[in-house]
Design a binder for these strands. Structure first.
Length: 886
RNA sequence: GGGAGCAUAGCUCAGCUGGUUCAGAGCAUCUGCCUUACAAGCAGAGGGUCACAGGUUCGAAUCCUGUUGCUCCCACCA
């Protein structure tokens, strides 16, 4: 059989993915097997695959494929998220490009466009996942806004409302002036920004107060004034008080007085409250209850007037006086200019503070008073915290427990309404009498309205449904349940079988948004955790350590990478540098290692398939080598199984990699490889194929394509066979003694090769080897072959005129035909002697310490004594050699 | 401002309950090799005061304290 000399993933990957699809191997239905379930963290429906997805989904696929091969009924449910803000923004932009403004459309018209857009551009990301090899059950593909999920959300909203956990209220919320919607606290990102601190003059009303050294009052020809510092001078338009600390001696005289808001002229009261930090600024704080959460709280406390100066889009409204209609930032500039001209600014300082930005639109958040829907979180959070504390759900790495705990303990109510159209519309209906009813449909709402308020409504037309939609996370928090229709049909066969799911793979950035809330939903609706393990991936960064982002343009296109290195190569590259929870500095070149590995295995296949097989007796070298390899494989399997238990996937992959490359290719294949032109015996051939087969199965979860290809080329397979559903090899007991002996033999081989190398001799040069000391003789045939020896012999005395090396305390001699460089050899020996003597001195120091000998455990002391004996023996040997050389 | 975490070879990281798996792996580097499976390769080699300073201990990369430097999360100081 002619096999191409280089492995070409492009054809192979396409072929096998199609094959798996045709065989329907990804699909799962409940049966008597143990289930293994993963639900995908649904990517944004209009998103495209980025490196974070690659990492995340590779890990999921590894776990799912492994579970499947372990005989579990593996089900990986894919789907997408409607991402209300992001998607709606995209649709709005798309419409704008076509000359259509959202405000000119009715809700229904807009939704029609939005759905069209979703159908057209949505789900690209799921297609891309196939290129990666993702073994998702595509028949189960879901969308957070498809009918079952939509209905589930509505049902849950009604239920929580009826339980009294959802309420509507006027609160200070985070307002996104670009998306024109409220946001939850979690959707606000605080960024450091360089701004200014403006010191404004507020003149005291009525009788002026004399400025003194002690008080904070200043004076000029216009009267006495106090100075108030602010970062947002435009908000003075909404000022309704100035606050100072009651115990601040500078301002005691202000008690009961009023000041004039600069430029505005409004007279506002001085209030006294301990909230004020006397150290900051001038110790006087202007109060704008409509535009700052703290001011709002103080406003409530002192019954201050609330003047909202902004429109929803961040421009000034009619309270903005001459600035009405201006954008808030333009207004800030203008107002500063105007106040400066009026001499109302004392000074301006540079100032750095944190400013909230919208997670989705990056607009600067405006605290805004508005009517929103909230969910009470305190009680539900307690239960959700408990299951993590009790390790019913395990976090990997565990440190995220701390983060989780902290958030859960300080949790606040969740603002769940969004002023958008793309999403689940809140099923609250307002009656003409301003009462509200909550029901799953308008018809049910009418029924309810008639029950509660007889005679108010005559038809559904009298009901006005709330205009808002729900936060996207209010649908994704149900994902592990709603995917199996567990909300609408509790106790159905699917939810009973697949829930709770096993592993959740996600980024730590959505631990609050999503992970925590899913746990809450699980407790509330299933009385059971939604998953048993959460594996937090790291963040993919570029090699400079920056987060990969579209705006920086530092993110490689995953599809291009796959084309260049093969999906297997990219998968391996990602996994190798990504221990759980660690950020991974991604460099394209790590994919090379994966590609090279595919090629390595490919060439191993070429070697084996190129051999001529003959029915003949199995040579000893082959028998020994194969026997060793089986033990070595079991040893590695045990290690890999342990790694998987601890979710140490990179370690598991590295162990597999070394097993294949080093043990299988470099040692076993070199051992059993017949000399050129010679055949191999059938037994060895069959066995090496069997081992190769097992190796491919071990590796398949990591590198699904190349392993399937090789697996099929190894031997004839049935028409419908696939490695995907072959058995995962299981660790058997390994013979430790045999492995240790072989390791010693390997050292001998390396020793001989090293000598040859250091003398600049060709590998073809044959040597004789003489051994003084204990030596694993059973492997001599392998040593002879791999070290290219003409003779191997045990001796009781050292051999003169030979180069030597030691393995443990055993001396190995290689006679050299050519002259030995005595000087160099002596120098080397001297150095080794020095080192060993130093080593012995250290050991002796310990052993001569009574406290050590008495205090340390018996075994430790025994080990030290053994070290001493070995070192002494070694020193003697080195000295003897030095003597014979000089 | 509060909390969490990290610091081990040039890079990315292992190193469990202190003691031969204690200084390791992969990549990178260096030196030889086109040795008919593989130069996307083979053989060999070099490379670390385990951030710093103390302490506990017979013994510390490992435990404790402090210092420095990073990272992340949370928080309404204008």
């Amino acid at each position: 059989m002619e096999i191409a000399s280089k492995y070409d993933p492009s054809i192979v990957e396409e072929k096998w993915y199609q094959y798996w699809m045709n065989q329907n191997l990804f699909h799962s239905v409940p049966d008597e097997r143990e289930p293994y379930t993963i639900v995908i963290p649904p990517p944004n429906v209009t998103g495209v695959l980025h490196m974070g997805h690659m990492l995340n989904n590779t890990i999921q696929d590894v776990l799912v494929r492994r579970a499947r091969m372990q005989g579990k009924n593996a089900c990986w449910v894919p789907g997408t998220d409607h991402a209300s803000i992001a998607t709606e923004a995209k649709v709005v932009n798309m419409l704008k490009e076509r000359g259509i403004e959202k405000r000119d459309l009715s809700r229904d018209e807009f939704m029609k466009y939005a759905w069209e857009w979703k159908e057209e551009h949505g789900g690209i990301i799921l297609k891309q996942l196939r290129k990666l090899g993702a073994s998702c059950d595509w028949e189960r593909t879901s969308f957070t806004m498809d009918e079952p999920r939509y209905e589930s959300v509505i049902k849950v909203f009604c239920d929580l409302y009826n339980k009294g956990l959802i309420y509507r209220g006027v609160r200070m919320v985070n307002w996104d002036p670009k998306a024109l919607t409220a946001l939850s606290d979690e959707e606000v990102i605080y960024k450091e920004s360089h701004g200014k601190l403006f010191y404004l003059r507020y003149y005291v009303e009525g009788e002026s107060i004399k400025a003194t050294e002690e008080n904070g009052i200043k004076q000029d020809e216009k009267g006495s004034y106090i100075v108030v510092a602010t970062t947002r001078p435009e908000t003075i338009l909404g000022d309704t008080a100035v606050c100072v600390h009651p115990e601040d001696p500078r301002y005691t005289e202000l008690n009961g007085r009023s000041v004039k808001v600069p430029g505005v002229g409004r007279s506002v009261k001085i209030i006294m409250d301990e909230y004020v930090d006397r150290e900051f600024g001038t110790g006087a704080l202007k109060i704008t209850p409509a535009h700052d959460i703290n001011d709002y709280n103080l406003g409530m406390k002192y019954h201050l007037e609330t003047i909202d100066i902004f429109n929803d889009n961040g421009t000034l409204n009619e309270h903005g006086m001459q600035y009405a209609g201006m954008d808030r930032f333009a207004c800030r500039k203008q107002i500063v200019k105007d106040l400066e001209e009026l001499g109302l600014i004392e000074k301006i300082e540079d100032y750095t503070n944190k400013v909230g930005h919208s997670e989705r639109t990056d607009a600067v958040i405006e605290p805004k008073l508005s009517a929103q829907w909230f969910m009470k979180m305190t009680d539900i959070a307690k239960k959700a915290l408990q299951v993590v504390e009790d390790n019913e759900i395990q976090f990997h790495p565990e440190k995220f427990k701390n983060t989780y705990r902290h958030w859960m303990e300080t949790i606040k109510d969740w603002c769940i309404s969004r002023q958008l159209w793309w999403g689940q519309r809140i099923p609250a209906y307002y009656l003409p009498n301003h009462e509200v009813v909550v029901a799953e449909t308008a018809e049910k709402a009418l029924e309810l309205a008639n029950q509660k308020f007889p005679g108010v409504c005559s038809s559904v037309d009298d009901l006005r449904q709330d205009e808002d939609v729900l936060d996207t996370w209010f649908s994704s928090w149900l994902w592990p349940i709603s995917l199996f229709d567990g909300i609408r049909n509790p106790g159905n066969d699917e939810i009973k079988y697949y829930y709770p799911t096993n592993d959740l793979i996600t980024g730590p950035d959505i631990i609050f948004f999503w992970v925590a809330r899913m746990i809450m939903a699980g407790e509330e609706y299933m009385k059971e955790v939604p998953f048993k393990n959460v594996y937090f991936t790291g963040i993919v960064r570029d090699k400079l350590g920056r987060k990969m982002s579209k705006s920086l343009g530092n993110s490689p296109d995953p599809i291009m990478l796959i084309e260049k290195y093969g999906a297997d190569g990219v998968r391996m590259g990602m996994l190798l540098t990504a221990p759980a929870g660690n950020d991974l500095p991604f460099d394209e070149s790590i994919c090379e290692q994966g590609r090279n590995f595919s090629n390595k295995m490919w060439n191993a296949l070429r070697l084996i398939k190129g051999l001529e097989v003959k029915d003949m007796e199995q040579p000893e070298v082959c028998r020994l080598g194969l026997d060793w390899m089986r033990n070595r494989m079991n040893q590695a399997l045990e290690e890999i199984e342990r790694d998987f238990e601890q979710y140490r996937l990179s370690e598991a992959l590295m162990a597999s990699y070394k097993l294949v490359w080093d043990d299988f290719c470099s040692w076993l294949l070199e051992t059993i490889k017949p000399t050129y032109g010679e055949p191999i015996d059938r037994k060895s051939y069959d066995e090496v194929i069997d081992i190769f087969d097992q190796l491919m199965r071990m590796l398949h979860p990591f590198m699904p394509f190349v392993t399937e290809e090789i697996w099929h080329m190894l031997k004839e397979r049935g028409e419908n066979e696939s490695i995907m559903v072959a058995d995962m090899p299981k660790a058997q007991k390994a013979d430790e003694k045999l492995l240790a002996d072989f390791a010693a033999a390997q050292e001998v081989i390396s020793g001989v090769r090293g000598l040859r190398n250091s003398k600049g001799l060709s590998p073809k040069e044959q040597f004789e080897l003489y051994i003084k000391g204990s030596h694993p003789e059973q492997f001599n045939s392998i040593i002879v072959k791999l070290a290219n020896l003409s003779k191997i012999e045990m001796v009781s005395d050292k051999v003169d005129g030979a180069l030597s090396f030691m393995v443990g305390t055993t001396e190995y001699f290689v006679p050299m035909s050519q002259n030995i460089d005595k000087e160099a050899e002596l120098a080397k020996l001297q150095e080794e002697l020095k080192y060993t003597e130093g080593f012995l001195a250290g050991v002796m120091k310990k052993l001569s310490n009574e406290k050590f000998v008495n205090g340390a455990p018996e075994a430790v002391v025994a080990k030290e004594r053994q070290k001493q004996a070995d070192a002494e023996q070694k020193i003697a040997a080195i000295k003897a050699q030095i003597a014979s050389l000089s």
